[in-house]
Design a binder for these strands. Structure first.
Lengths: 338, 338
DNA sequence: TAAGATATGCAAAACGTTTTGTATCAGGAA
DNA sequence: TTCCTGATACAAAACGTTTTGCATATCTTA
């Protein structure tokens, strides 16, 4: 209640508030003797300057806002919350608070989150693609943005990207290295650049090894789990059976596996599966899913670093994280061994 | 940048800042005519009062801190993740920010989170048990606390509790109703009150139906997944095989199922499993897990309501959420049917 | 009409910092 | 000495609200 103020400390130390402020913030212009004296009293009293006052006078909130779409499925959120963990960890280094919020769709256009309208954030990290106009509006207010896991239709903004083409190539190459030649493909075409990248990676690996892809094996209209199930169904109906299925996300793979099992297939003996992401879930299912890991916690830390740089006035930059880290579990049969 | 202030609005409306403040905050003492006039200008200019100023003058942060042990972060633990969602949702109603932080163990004693030392939070919600002395220290600073999913060794504080005894009874009764008589038990004894409750519920149901429990079927040293696996292993070695296993958490159940499968058991044909929690994962595994649902999002909302009440000066209260909601999936065999 | 009550409005203080501008003093160069 | 420079310290302004205390105008009641 009767909390100490900088004036109290000043009085105790027999100096002015200015000096105390300087000492606390490590600025120069105060003699070693007084510095020592003040420091001792600060130590004794456990004094911490009021952050509210600092916010007001410095016109900074010391908050970073995280905005995410509120319509995404629980598991895509889970993907993002792994990013959040890395982000939170790193935020402590900078002494910033992290505030989660989401975009509310009001009528036809988007509503700015409260923390932006209240000027309660120094920067925004987006967990998803955001409309360029929306980003621009926030940037126009002087609040820098960083977009995480974005797809490059908005080059002018600061972004943390994943090289999904590389991830897809890695996954496909792995299947081939295990002796697979008939490899089907399940993806979403919902996010244009994502699907282009993934498909390119897959196609490159296949053609590099001279492997054919019957058209029935290319299933691109998975949006959520149910549709990935349906994609797998269509592969069964295509007449030709693959020995492996490459799925653009782990969640797609998990659904497709369910379908395969419903058809009496054993995994991986009869049919192999590989995904991308390495979500928490993937190690728990049976068989545990082989996948290409996206280091989400790392992405979070990187995003934090980047938003701080932008707050400090640096230009937007674009970063791509590596995505070639195979996590080999039990869902892919090895033809060349045993 | 050159953001509008309440003085600007006052000037435009031809009134004093006081009036504008009154209008914005819906206080009485201003005539309908002026109110209308001011409101119009606020509307036109999209004016939002600076939250930093309000924080300073009102001595409130409009933040709620969430502290978790750093091993129970919602981002690593699915259970807490779901609570966090409910909490976030509800926080918007009250216009509070939610700030996640954790306890750092520095040396032998605990370090207060930064938001507390900086006086940057109006209340704290604890995920998981906290040391009473620690809670008391925070309360002493005038910051109210609410503990979520706590176990009643700290009755004097505000808490949201789960009736695990009821949940355990519900689960066990369900197994019995499906014709099971040999029911083993896997739990943790790590959190004393949790395990007491769960075990009591189990034992009550068993003895109520006159069912015996061989001592080899009571496995209480699961702490994490691996040890739940080991618990199951020990049940196999006990000589007598149960027809069903009741696990104190879904995660234990999932690990135990893995072990059972490694022993060539089919689930649920050869051995049935039931858990408590209904974490997201449980519906995705094969077979989908039958469990007793704890409504975690609801608990989050309740905790938010409670901390707001406490901030408004109300006395600590203790709330127990219902825990008898069976989610029947595919992991329990029905002996009495077909 | 007088006198009190009520409604409406404003000026100024307050919140606890950081920053700006100025004053004082010591030391060095001329 | 005198002048300049650099170091040290302080008083006061500033940040943008809410709150307090007071003034004026209007309404009621007798």
């Amino acid at each position: 209640m009767g909390s100490l103020t900088i004036k109290d400390i000043a009085k105790m130390a027999g100096v002015s508030p200015t000096v105390v402020s300087f000492v606390i913030n490590g600025k120069k212009g105060v003699s070693p003797a007084t510095r020592e004296k003040v420091l001792k009293i600060v130590e004794q009293t456990q004094f911490k300057p009021s952050i509210s006052s600092r916010r007001l006078i410095m016109k900074k909130s010391f908050n970073i806002g995280i905005v995410m779409a509120n319509d995404s499925s629980p598991f895509s959120n889970l993907f993002y919350f792994e990013i959040a963990r890395g982000l939170l960890e790193r935020s402590k280094v900078y002494g910033y608070n992290v505030i989660f919020t989401d975009i509310r769709q009001s009528g036809k256009d988007l509503q700015l989150p409260g923390i932006i309208e209240n000027q309660d954030t120094d920067g925004i990290i987006f967990f998803q693609d955001a409309q360029s106009s929306f980003l621009q509006e926030i940037e126009n207010r002087g609040i820098p943005c960083v977009v995480i896991d974005a797809h490059p239709d908005q080059e002018e903004f600061a972004m943390i990207k994943v090289d999904y083409e590389c991830a897809a190539r890695t996954a496909t190459e792995f299947l081939i290295s295990y002796g697979h030649q008939q490899i089907a493909f399940i993806s979403s075409s919902f996010v244009p650049n994502f699907y282009t990248q993934v498909f390119n990676g897959y196609r490159q690996a296949m053609s590099h090894h001279g492997l054919a892809i019957p058209s029935g094996w290319i299933q691109m209209d998975a949006v959520e789990e149910q549709s990935a199930y349906a994609c797998m169904e269509r592969i069964f109906q295509s007449g030709e059976m693959p020995t492996a299925v490459f799925c653009a996300t782990d969640l797609f793979a998990i659904s497709a596996m369910k379908c395969a099992r419903a058809h009496g297939m054993r995994i991986p003996e009869d049919l192999s599966f590989i995904g991308i992401d390495d979500i928490l879930l993937s190690q728990y299912i049976e068989p545990a899913l082989t996948t290409v890991r996206i280091d989400k916690a790392d992405m979070g830390g990187l995003a934090m670093d980047m938003i701080i740089r932008r707050i400090n006035g640096e230009k937007p930059e674009c970063l791509t994280v590596a995505s070639d880290h195979l996590i080999i579990r039990d869902s892919v049969r090895h033809f060349k061994e045993a």
